[in-house]
Design a protein around this nucleic acid. Sequence first.
DNA 1: CGCATTAACTAAACCGGTTTATTTAATTAA
DNA 2: TTAATTAAATAAACCGGTTTAGTTAATGCG
Lengths: 340, 340
Amino acid sequence: MRLTIADIARLADVSKATVSTVLNDKPGISPKTRKKVLAIVQKYGYRPSHVARSLSTRRTHTIGLVIKEIVNPYYARIIKGVFDGCTDNGYTVLLGSSELAPPKERQSIEKLLNYGVDGMIISPLQGEEIDFTYLARLTQEQYPLVMLNNVQNYATHVVDIDNVKAAFDAVCYLIGLGHRKIAYLTGPASSVHNSERLTGYQQALMNHNLPITQKFIVTAGSYIENGFRTGKALFSDDDDVPTAVLCYNDLVAIGLANALIEMNIPVPERVSIIGFDDIDFCRSFRIPLTTVHIPAYEIGKAAADLLIRTIDQPAANPNGYEKVVLPALLMERNSCATIA
Amino acid sequence: MRLTIADIARLADVSKATVSTVLNDKPGISPKTRKKVLAIVQKYGYRPSHVARSLSTRRTHTIGLVIKEIVNPYYARIIKGVFDGCTDNGYTVLLGSSELAPPKERQSIEKLLNYGVDGMIISPLQGEEIDFTYLARLTQEQYPLVMLNNVQNYATHVVDIDNVKAAFDAVCYLIGLGHRKIAYLTGPASSVHNSERLTGYQQALMNHNLPITQKFIVTAGSYIENGFRTGKALFSDDDDVPTAVLCYNDLVAIGLANALIEMNIPVPERVSIIGFDDIDFCRSFRIPLTTVHIPAYEIGKAAADLLIRTIDQPAANPNGYEKVVLPALLMERNSCATIA
DNA sequence: CGCATTAACTAAACCGGTTTATTTAATTAA
DNA sequence: TTAATTAAATAAACCGGTTTAGTTAATGCG
């Protein structure tokens, strides 16, 4: 059985309170006693129980991170950012994932809450069936929360890029290359990023007096297969086909590119493709992918910093919510070309 | 402030003990009382503090997972497997990562230990500078541990594939295609998987009376860039160049393929390539990659199951350690060809 | 020198659950 | 009717820390 603070107190011939004071580097202990206690602690390799400390301080020094998909290189970078941000500040991460299913999201959040995390970073799903009242209750209780995308009608900290602008810029870039028939392969309906990117896409077309064709807004998803299948369907129709496609993310873009190549439609000669995220693999793909770089690691780190700041100085944000917008950058590689 | 069990007891006009008994579904409570308590619990949305429960039961229902790299699609699948295996059994995962640095590994492990995880799944680093005495101490204390690779001179549960055999089979496959000059691009020295794969590679060559050339065993690493740079170096020498290369993992293989293509050396026509892991992108790479499929998700899940079994029934394994070996499978795709 | 102040240390309460030993009430057996 | 047994509920101790209020010893000051 592990040693407790009482054991150390007995061994050092002092009280539990003294041991506690020494270990927390608080004043009021003579150098002699401090040394004596530390020697015993050292000798027996004593490590205080984090659980007991959490109970009495009512702080677990643990934060919850709820993402949408574990097996997704984009979220891997988010996780690493959050992880590093927490480790630097003496916090630990409890991981949760909704795997794109609203009930699972809620389950994850409640579970983390039960575990007593001091705050949470959430990449929330959105949609008709989603009920934010339980999150709203948290906010009312001043529970520290940072979201990784905007949430409608809900005041909270947010760390994200400007998705509307990013999509807008990407589409303008395509228009600048001469494209007029530009499609958008959407992500899952539950994704806020997706709806914002769609908005940016539409705004860019409108700004250039180009028509918004429903046929060119195609529901895909977030995986390679989605891009592949949607691409096949979209380009099987011969007479009216886009010359450029903005994709919800890189995986969809890769799937699309593979579909086009399989159909003998050269990329970028006949179709230009832009993705989102800039996952590592973009550069190594058969056609190095032009994509909107999202600083996922930095987002994760900024979210952790903001959250921990909020936890450690609750008074510092008297009802004000921060919105941290990080820069996204279009990475021009080889999947886009001027139109012939 | 959140409600405590004392609040509920007061509201239901019973004792704390009764509330606790009801909530843990233990016998000895009249149906009437049970109903009354549950009604109050329901009404106020009471959720017991996990921390307090952990302190008194001395079980946190949390396990630690220490991997080598967060941003690595292979480990993402491991994480998901562990995650699912834990969630199914009412456990939660605390994540740690060594990021390939021994001191960080140790830090992570000690941190998780302090947090009171009930057991740990570790993908341990190995090498001269690594000191396993602290892990050995844990094992002596019957601390539940599952390793994701073999550890020398150290009795513990292990869940893994047979790396020696997998590499052996892969090289035999290349030899079967007519290759005689086969190189191996190694992973990091700290990787046990790497040394086992190297062994399998050497055994296969020996079995076929082929020479083991030091020049053809090249230190690469675990990232795309490593494969790229090592590939460039290996193939810049014109007169004695391999016709096939086994790579430590898929990322290295992708880097190598990119390097060869850039050098106008066609794959697989002039050089065959085999990777390890079968990450998602293998299929979407410019040359669909032949690779050894490692069931990472299943490994994670099996490790979680084994660990939780060990935690929940400490007596069940009276000093016996399980070694779970899952099947690896060579996925024949387009990066290998018979020699001209 | 005696009293006020400060420094060093400790006893005991507390955090929010679980569990053991005990009490109380209800039922059964004689 | 009464003693013995069983069922239901509870009081109190406990898990391993932190913290508050209080005690004791040492120091400062007029």
